[in-house]
Design a protein around this nucleic acid. Structure first.
Length: 556
RNA sequence: GCGCCCGUAGCUCAGUGGAUAGAGCGCCUGACUACGAAUCAGGAGGCCAGAGGUUCAAGUCCUCUCGGGCGCACCA
């Protein structure tokens, strides 16, 4: 077992001791049965092992009997203070408080680097997310993907992976022409022509295009609008796409999300990458001509059906540039490629996996996370949204109304794939019902204490961590010792929600400690130890919130 | 019809095959002359959708049924 934390050291230590205990009884080769985990509830020690239950079949010993003899013969050491057999045969381990308290020294040495580890071994991860089409404003679910993707990248980096964030800009397809069409209609409208009665069905009438049209007109006041026929759609569309990309970039930056790269479909097309991917699949023998079209034989790789790549009219389906894009991701040497897709993209998973496999890569190196649907609520009331009708809440407005911190927190506290309700009324509440403030308040309280301590101007005494003995202090130490493992787990499982969960626990333990134990009023030795403890808590709160892209204000 | 996600407290959701299934909100009791009450301590509230199976052990794994969402284009 590789350990990245004080907690992990204890686990590894106990595993070794258990292994020895089993061998002493003549049971060899049972290492794989040995598990040491945190208990599911209080009162079962600091760590727990179910090994006696696991090996019962092999050893032919009643689990509780085996556990009891192991506990009775346990050689005391500097890590484990006490071992007890319990329940049907669990072993409950209580750690020396002194030993746990050294986590504070680790935190003092590591500083803001505490929590980082080398678990990822430098594996390179590309994470593509949001990738909203540049033909209109982003919507609420884009915000969820943005928060999750960005936070996941931060977590992966902290856990020793090298993660890159990428936004794929769909600026090469038909929709850009459609946007150009819409802009030209809005330009006519700005000149006083009536356009709504003849508005084409396939052109979204969203009024967000009006602002873009206005911008274009200001830049080109001399162009005669009547000349803007179909031949102008591409030019207008490119203009609009650039405007919307800039808008996306700025909204996302305001949301704390920055991408290492904006990858343009247009560049792919200009480099003839779509043609190249078809050629490559053809050479590999995975293309077939049928019904006047050219098909990718994705069924060979477990897809539901084969996929058209070149339509009978000679044009390519949208899947082709996407396929070229994914081929490029792997060609760039990433060990893992993660896509965060919207909830309307389930059908996309099979064909993309098939592509990866067809190109000769292990299909599980492509990980597709479907970000669950977001329903926007105002209290009890569902906010109805329809892009077609142009009635929707842009992400920008959501962020402005809720605030960056609550919005990110709401998106990150749930597992990515489950559908969620986002309650705007709750998110914008500036009071205790809003869970993000619970964590921030713990930090603000610690800042307050440290401020007061500095104002008192008392000098430090030597730090003696042996003063930390109370149940509240033990619990905080135990949580601090676990933090690096929480980060690793969130990274490996691609599950950022573990971090807010953990921070809530840490904040709760701190608030309980704070109410129970005076910090500044104690004798100088214990005061110094408690100050070191809460400084450590503050460090971890700040670090954890940073992984979520959430601030930790000194005052609230 | 086929595929994916989801059914856990009144609501929103956690839950790594392990002991008596958790948190927040809401509800009910209590706690500021206090380092910040945006807090704390306690209480009520559950056939983990249902039925079979695997296992020493199932909310968790397998099969089926029921319910909800989303996908199943030579659209993007």
């Amino acid at each position: 077992m590789v350990s990245y934390s004080r907690f992990g050291e204890a686990q590894a230590h106990i595993v070794r001791s258990l292994d020895r205990a089993l061998r002493d009884r003549g049971f060899d080769g049972l290492e794989s049965y040995i598990e040491v985990d945190r208990p599911t509830e209080e009162g079962h020690g600091d760590l727990v092992s179910n090994v006696a239950l696991k090996v019962a079949r092999v050893t032919k010993m009643p689990p509780l009997a085996l556990a009891s003899t192991i506990a009775a013969e346990w050689q005391s050491d500097e890590v484990v203070a006490h071992v007890a057999a319990a329940g049907p045969g669990f072993l409950n381990f209580t750690l020396h408080t002194r030993w746990m308290a050294d986590v504070i020294r680790q935190i003092q040495v590591a500083g803001s680097g505490y929590g980082t580890s080398s678990a990822g071994n430098g594996a390179r991860v590309l994470i593509e997310f949001v990738s909203a089409n540049p033909v209109g404003p982003m919507v609420v679910v884009n915000g969820r993907a943005a928060a999750i993707g960005d936070s996941l990248a931060r977590i992966l980096n902290a856990a020793g992976f090298v993660a890159h964030r990428e936004f794929y800009v769909n600026d090469g397809g038909n929709q850009v022409l459609t946007l150009g069409h819409a802009i030209s209609l809005r330009l006519r409208e700005l000149q006083g022509q009536e356009v709504m009665s003849t508005w084409p069905d396939d052109v979204y009438p969203g009024d967000y295009v009006i602002a873009v049209a206005r911008e274009w007109r200001n830049l080109h006041p001399d162009v005669v609008i009547e000349d803007l026929d179909e031949s102008s759609y591409a030019m207008l569309g490119d203009f609009g796409a650039a405007r919307f990309q800039a808008q996306h970039e700025s909204v996302l930056r305001g949301f704390g999300v920055e991408f290492e790269r904006w990858y343009h479909e247009k560049d792919l097309r200009e480099a003839k990458a779509p043609e190249a991917i078809i050629e490559r699949l053809d050479q590999l023998g995975f293309m077939e001509a049928k019904d006047g079209a050219r098909w990718f034989l994705s069924e060979k790789f477990g897809d539901d059906k084969n996929r058209v790549m070149v339509k009978s009219d000679g044009t390519m389906t949208y899947f082709v540039p996407d396929a070229a894009y994914h081929a490029d991701k792997f060609a760039r040497g990433y060990d893992y490629v993660i896509d965060l897709l919207g909830p309307d993209h389930h059908g996309y998973v099979g064909r993309m996996r098939a592509l990866v496999e067809a190109l000769g890569y292990p299909p599980d190196r492509l990980e597709i996370l479907i970000v669950g649907l977001v329903r926007l609520m105002r209290g009890e009331e569902l906010v109805r949204m329809s892009k077609r009708k142009g009635s929707y809440v842009p992400l920008e407005d959501l962020i402005a109304e809720a605030g960056v911190d609550p919005a990110r927190y709401f998106f990150l506290e749930r597992s990515p794939e489950t559908p969620m309700d986002f309650d705007l009324d709750l998110a914008k509440l500036r009071d205790s019902k809003n869970p993000v403030y619970y964590i921030q308040y713990a930090g603000a309280r610690i800042h307050g204490i440290l401020r007061q301590w500095r104002e008192q101007g008392e000098s430090d005494v030597d730090l003696n961590l042996a003063h930390l003995q109370s149940p509240h202090e033990r619990q905080l130490l135990w949580l601090l010792a676990r933090y690096p493992d929480v980060v690793v787990r969130a990274a490996v499982e691609r599950a950022p929600q573990h971090v807010p969960k953990y921070l809530t626990e840490l904040a709760s333990a701190f608030h309980g400690f704070y109410r129970e134990e005076r910090i500044l009023e104690g004798a100088s030795g214990i005061r110094q130890a408690r100050l070191a403890l809460i400084e450590s808590v503050l460090m971890v709160l700040a670090s954890g919130l940073d992984l979520l892209g959430i601030s930790l204000p000194e005052r609230m």
